[in-house]
Simulated assay, not measured.
Amino acid sequence: MKLKAFLLSSLVAAPLAFANAEITTQDTYARATPPTAVTSAVFGNIHNSGDRARNIVSVSVDAAGKSELHDVIMDGEMMKMRHVDTFVIPANGKLPLKPGGHHIMMFDLKHPLKEGQTLNVTLTFANGEKYQFQAPVKKVMAGMSMNHNMDHGKEMDHGKMDMQH
């Protein structure tokens, strides 16, 4: 009887394990922060080797009190960062997470992010499945196109940005 229960539970769990194997990450990292910063972001690539698109509906990061899916759009001459409900990873494709585009935004950091640390990131998909990966913390060049450590709503020195949530 125990063997039957084990086999049955293995069959039920097998599709989820297979589906999870279709998702991989590459070149992920979180931006290091100065001591007083309360926000940062995670970047990299999320790959989907499956034959159907996958929808990420939420994210959590162990070093942040709150994490959100964000993208950046142009509204006239103003770049606007906004919270979105879903990231879609195309079938047999990838979703790049990069400054000035889709990214994982972290708020209420529990501590400054220092180079050499590693963050645990959990993606939740529309079907309830979760995928976890680690993102090393890295220093990035000061000339990057976005500064996630700025106060929301302030203008940037090299352009305008309106942060919406």
Rank of each mutant, 00 (worst) to 15 (best):
K2P: 02
F6M: 07
L7Y: 00
L8M: 07
L11G: 03
P15M: 07
P15L: 10
P15T: 11
A17T: 13
A17F: 12
A17M: 15
F18E: 02
A19C: 12
A19N: 10
N20M: 08
N20V: 05
E22S: 12
T24E: 09
D27Q: 09
Y29R: 06
Y29M: 02
R31P: 12
R31L: 15
R31F: 08
A32E: 06
T33L: 02
T33M: 03
T36W: 13
T39Y: 01
T39F: 07
A41Q: 04
V42H: 04
G44E: 06
N45C: 02
I46L: 09
I46C: 08
H47W: 13
R54V: 14
V57L: 08
V57T: 13
S60T: 15
D62Y: 00
D62E: 03
D62A: 09
S67E: 00
H70S: 12
D71Q: 04
M74I: 02
M79W: 14
K80G: 01
K80M: 03
K80R: 13
R82N: 03
H83I: 11
V84C: 03
T86I: 14
F87R: 06
V88P: 12
V88C: 06
I89L: 12
I89T: 10
I89W: 07
P96N: 09
K98Y: 14
G100A: 10
G100K: 12
G101H: 04
G101S: 14
H102Q: 09
M105W: 14
M105D: 08
F107R: 05
F107V: 08
D108C: 05
K110C: 05
H111A: 06
H111E: 00
H111G: 03
P112C: 04
L113F: 08
K114E: 14
E115V: 11
E115N: 02
Q117Y: 09
T118K: 13
L119N: 07
N120W: 02
T122K: 15
T124V: 15
T124F: 05
F125V: 12
A126K: 12
E129D: 12
Q132L: 03
Q132H: 10
Q134F: 01
Q134M: 03
A135H: 03
A135I: 00
V137E: 00
K138Y: 06
K138L: 06
M144P: 01
M146D: 15
N149T: 15
M150N: 10
M150G: 10
H152Q: 06
H152D: 13
H152T: 09
G153E: 04
E155H: 11
H158P: 09
G159P: 10
K160W: 03
M161E: 00
D162H: 11
M163Y: 12
Q164D: 10
H165Y: 12
H165M: 11
